[in-house]
């Protein structure tokens, strides 16, 4: 990582800029996760010292439960961003597909069929995203924005005109996935942990996973060395949608309803914030599951602390904005704009 950065700096024609970049390399840890984990540690200690209710097992469970859905979604988004893409349709797709699943369940459709149908549609839209981006070569930003709107519009028109659907009492079994184990450990946290573990094994120990990093690093080289870059893109977006669907089911299990309005909320930006904050750079090829966990933890600690302190909205917005700004500054210090990072897309 450090070597790559130096290489990027050397190709820069401006020698003074190169000197500054190497100086930065010495001053700052090359690893953004480390910086975020350090911030998390500082926040954690500060809150534990100042707030007696912070460092309790119950609050730790509450904190991790609160961020598990965000974390799950960020894992899906992470794959796409590592491959230099972005999936703006993720939340719209999960709202639509989970809404459809709940409607099917409430109408007495057997659970495996209802859950399977939702997953099938989610993967279908993910594949459509991938096809549009890889084969029609539409920029990811526009393709996923359009498919998200399309999915949401079609769901509203055909299935859920009133945007809200409650899980019927006969389907209360699904709520168990939003409950706690007997020791108080929230099940959404376990789901997050399992998805994170599977994701880590996939990204680090499988050929496809390693290839995604190669593609994100340099799509042309990946293609020239014989990687099936286009089918890989389709797979990545399908995975993002499918993981989003899992996150959506946890949401339904926790709240017993699905409200399509979340597609219009800032959730999708929170997901991208977590991904970028943790060190999966928008320039691709960097970061991993630990980045997502670091980013999610930082957001989780902030949200939890602000709720415990009962801060008003303005103060919360100032803090959130400051953290986002700090993350962008750190990102640009660690990944200075040069010839390597200025290249975008396929």
């Amino acid at each position: 990582m450090g070597a790559r950065q130096t290489l990027g700096a050397v190709t820069d024609s401006d020698s003074s800029k190169a000197k500054r970049a190497t100086a930065r390399g010495r001053l700052l840890p090359a690893n953004q996760e480390f910086a975020v984990f350090a911030t998390v540690a500082v926040c954690f200690v500060a809150m534990a010292l100042t707030m007696p209710s912070f460092l309790t097992l119950g609050n730790m469970f509450a904190l991790t439960r609160g961020i598990s859905v965000l974390g799950i979604l960020a894992l899906g988004m992470g794959i796409v961003v590592i491959a230099r893409g972005i999936d703006l349709s993720q939340v719209a797709v999960l709202a639509s597909t989970c809404g459809i699943t709940v409607v099917l369940l409430n109408n007495g459709i057997p659970a495996p069929v209802a859950l399977g149908a939702g997953l099938f549609i989610a993967i279908g839209i993910g594949c459509l995203n991938g096809l549009l981006i890889a084969f029609v070569e539409i920029p990811a930003l526009f393709a996923t924005l359009a498919t998200g709107l399309l999915t949401l519009g079609a769901t509203r028109a055909l299935v859920l005109p009133q945007l809200i659907v409650y899980l019927g009492p006969e389907n209360a079994w699904l709520q168990q996935f939003g409950g706690n184990l007997s020791i108080g450990l929230p099940i959404p946290v376990i789901v997050f942990a399992v998805v994170a573990l599977v994701m880590h094994v996939f990204l680090v120990h499988t050929v496809l996973g390693r290839s995604i990093y190669a593609q994100g690093d340099n799509p042309e080289t990946a293609w020239l060395t014989g990687m099936p870059v286009r089918p890989m893109i389709v797979t990545e977006y399908a995975l993002s949608s499918a993981i989003g669907y899992i996150g959506g089911l946890v949401m339904v299990a926790s709240t017993s309803l699905m409200h399509l309005q979340i597609a219009d909320s800032s959730l999708i930006f929170d997901v991208i914030l977590v991904v970028v904050l943790g060190g999966i750079s928008l320039t691709g090829g960097r970061g991993g599951v630990s980045s997502v966990i670091a980013g999610t933890l930082l957001i989780g600690i902030l949200l939890n602390g602000m709720t415990l302190l009962n801060l008003d909205t303005q103060t919360q917005n100032i803090i959130r904005g400051a953290v986002l700004l700090a993350a962008i500054v750190v990102d640009s210090l660690l990944h200075p704009h040069d010839e390597e990072t200025s290249k975008q897309g396929l």
Binding site: G58, L63, S254, H259, Q261, L303
Partner: peptide
């Protein structure tokens, strides 16, 4: 809670602990 069930769920979980 911004009219959002998920946000309300998170806030309530924390407040119930506190």
């Amino acid at each position: 809670g911004d009219w959002d069930a998920n946000k309300a769920n998170q806030i309530a979980t924390t407040v119930l602990q506190q």
